[in-house]
Design a protein around this nucleic acid. Structure first.
Lengths: 302, 302
DNA sequence: CTAGAGGCACAACCAACGGTTGTGGCTCGC
DNA sequence: GCGAGCCACAACCGTTGGTTGTGCCTCTAG
């Protein structure tokens, strides 16, 4: 492909061969092979050089695009100068949305969003090791390793997700106190994880029934279950993206007075030289809600 | 790359090998070679299969994109089911702009814009031969080959392009009659071409001095010449895109009363089965100006 | 605790690919 | 008409990339 583009740019195989440091015959062979694979003629040969055919003209921009993508792919992992790589715990929750906004605002910065599938300790270890440039987690800033920095970037308020038959289905807003009478189901939180700790502390603070146990069949199953139930509900982050069929008629009801928020920090290595990281940090300015919030004490490992 | 994606999807080399109809060892070798080239480990191997590393996760979407682009590149020339291919005489004039608008409105339709670099006769021959799906030219509809259809899609009005020292530099609008006193320079029109015929007929109709001869050094040179001259001017299509440094201070002045328009038709083969062509035809509805226009008699080959 | 199943890597082997040099034919310009 | 410039074809050969055979590791079932 690179040879084809070089030949198209040069207008002759000889010169392209020079640029690629191979012989004219090799260029001829490569182009012939490409033409054979595509079963189409890309160049019209003459004694003065070559000229793109119609098919060649149509193919050229695609070939260039292919090389661009290949170079980007290479740059995404090439040690030393790879793209900014950020870990999010799930692609459906707040931080992923923040990153998407960031990408829209800075399309020139190449960004890789990955999901490490580890807890805060593991993610911070990955940041320390340089495997990722940054991660999002709830941390008590005082107890981080020396080389690690953190900045609060998102206080994520919660919404109650209920089906149409749930008693609170028609509420515009609910208070934590109101939730005490209802069962909140959040399966899949590993005991001891920051998530489990958070929801246990929340439950204790307001006398709630938050069910962290139970079989985990995935988010889709959970949503389906809630859609059909008159008593089940769950909590989701305000920025999170969950999709369901319209017919399920699920409702998201803000929780306020106070609003339990989940405090997310961006975590990075102090000595990370990536300029894009600085840009990301600047772009992610925390906007504190203008209503009363409830925050956990964050007594976990960090 | 395809092997890497297959292995990532399968979660094990064995299964990927089956899907690709090669042996597990070949998959192992291919992945190892890719890892070597990138000097990065993409998979963590275990006795239960393989799992993407962080680098692998970051690389995967790029690899998928690469395959997508490769497939599109292939589809762009693969005989039988290639993308809609339209010839424009120049990427800077009206039809190219129409196509760009069309692409924005229908981003799902893959469109290849090519420049055949031939006259109307050659372009229509290319349409007949199936090398391109459509072309834009000024034609008298009556005399086309049987298998060819045409529809007027753009009556392109002209603007006078002058430098700041030209006598008409400050005019808001000019008439063809006014132009009779000034020299209009349009080098590079081959004698007998539809363009030359048009401008000759225009010159005759209004007693203009239109200079089609002269050395051709390219558009940039022409613009530079005009910018510095107090007497030279040229005509450009209203939709055409020419760029120049701000300091040149060139002005585009509409020609009206009547406005000489250049009538462009979309030309295609009656039996072209491409559904996208139908969409293009529907999208390109001619919008006739609501002011008096001048049209040529179109006495050329077609 | 052990045996077997399942999965990946390494080694040896071999066809085919992709480069090289050498050469011939074509076209254009002097 | 002849040389210069450029591309294609042929012969040649090292390397690549597939194959089969095998060993090692881990997880699990008996």
């Amino acid at each position: 492909m690179r040879t084809f583009v070089a030949a198209a740019d040069a207008g002759q195989f000889q010169e392209a061969a020079g640029a690629l440091a191979i012989t004219q015959q090799a260029v001829s062979k490569r182009v012939a092979a490409l033409e054979h694979d595509l079963s189409v003629r890309l160049f019209a040969r003459s004694a003065r050089g070559v000229q793109l055919t119609v098919d060649g003209q149509a193919f050229l921009p695609h070939a260039r695009e292919l090389l661009r993508v290949a170079d980007r792919a290479d740059a995404s992992v090439r040690p030393g100068r790879r793209a900014l790589r950020v870990d999010v715990h799930s692609r459906r929750i707040g931080p992923a949305v923040l990153l998407q906004d960031f990408h829209r605002a800075h399309p020139d910065i190449s960004l890789d969003v990955v999901t490490l599938d580890v807890d805060a300790v593991g993610a911070i270890a990955a940041v320390e090791a340089g495997a990722v440039d940054a991660t999002f987690h709830a941390v008590a800033v005082r107890r981080l390793p020396d080389a690690i920095r953190a900045a609060r970037v998102l206080d994520e308020p919660h919404e109650l997700l209920v089906g149409p038959r749930h008693p609170l289905a028609s509420a515009d807003v609910v208070t934590p106190a109101q939730l005490a009478e209802h069962r909140i189901w959040m399966p899949g939180m590993a005991p001891g994880s920051e998530w489990a700790d958070y929801y246990l502390e929340l439950a204790a603070a307001f006398g709630l029934t938050i069910d962290l146990a139970g079989p985990v069949f995935g988010n889709e199953a959970l949503l389906a279950e809630i859609a059909g139930s008159a008593s089940l509900s769950t909590l989701v982050g305000e920025h999170s993206r969950y999709l369901w069929p319209d017919s399920w008629d699920l409702r998201r009801i803000p929780v306020r007075d106070p609003a339990p928020v989940y405090p997310m920090s961006l975590i990075w290595r102090a000595d990370n030289p990536q300029p894009a990281l600085r840009t990301l940090r600047r772009a992610l300015r925390a906007s504190t809600p203008d209503y009363p919030v409830w925050l956990p004490k964050l007594s976990g490992t960090y």
